[in-house]
Amino acid sequence: MPAAPRSVLPDGGVMAAPTLTRVVKPIGGFFAFTLDTFVAMFKPPFQWREFIQQTWFVASVSLGPAILLGIPFVALVTFQFNLILVEIGAIDLSGSGSGFATVTQIGPVATTFIIAGASSTAICADIGARKIREELDAMEVLGIDTVQRLVVPRVLATAVNAFLLNGVMILIGLSGGFVFGVFLQGASPGQYVDSMKLLVGFPDLVHGEIRAVVFGVVGALIGCYRGMTCAAGPRGVGNAVNETVVYTFLALFPINILLTQIPYSLGIVGGH
């Protein structure tokens, strides 16, 4: 028998403990849950059917928002950057700014927004609904490991989606930057394409993709954990989804800094 996943869930007992315990206990629970998930990830059998369904599900809730959010996001940044370039008479460098901003930060950060706002909320709402309908308890009674059956496929599905969403964001970024720079602010199209790779290269793309995958894994883990620990009643699920968004943002921005700086410090990216 696999280790009982029930141990990671708070016992729902007396919460009269002081504030410190209220903060620390869920964090400890989350780390235990993460560890359980990674152990279960390598334990056969792998849930292919659930994985494919979840990949489709996460893609269907994230792709639309990703496109709709990506366009204004990119337009906003390119527009401001081009204002500076117009002022110093270097609008032809518009491509380099758009390439740099999109590949290094906008892609991964916009992916963060989508993971936090769309994917992990949908996962949390789904798991939370199962939790309050006592489906999770029923699964455990049947001896099914909920972490292996439900969490692992969702985490991997979100990771795959984050990888692809980052690509979508970069595509939107570069083409949106082209439309803005060339058609509206007077850059020359050839110069735009030519200067695009002035500040970024292939290592930066890999760097961005790795960050996106990490964001996807963390976002899905938070969504699953918060969904599995949600309280009963309508307010319980609502609060769980609300907290999922907040915790995902809180976790992803510090992770972004670490993952941005470490490769620069090691000299893997940058320095063209």
Partner: peptide
């Protein structure tokens, strides 16, 4: 209750787009 969870998710998606 499940509908409340879905509503929160839908609202976040819509409002992030609207914010930008």
């Amino acid at each position: 209750p499940a509908g409340v969870g879905r509503a929160v998710g839908k609202a976040v998606r819509t409002s992030l787009i609207a914010v930008l």
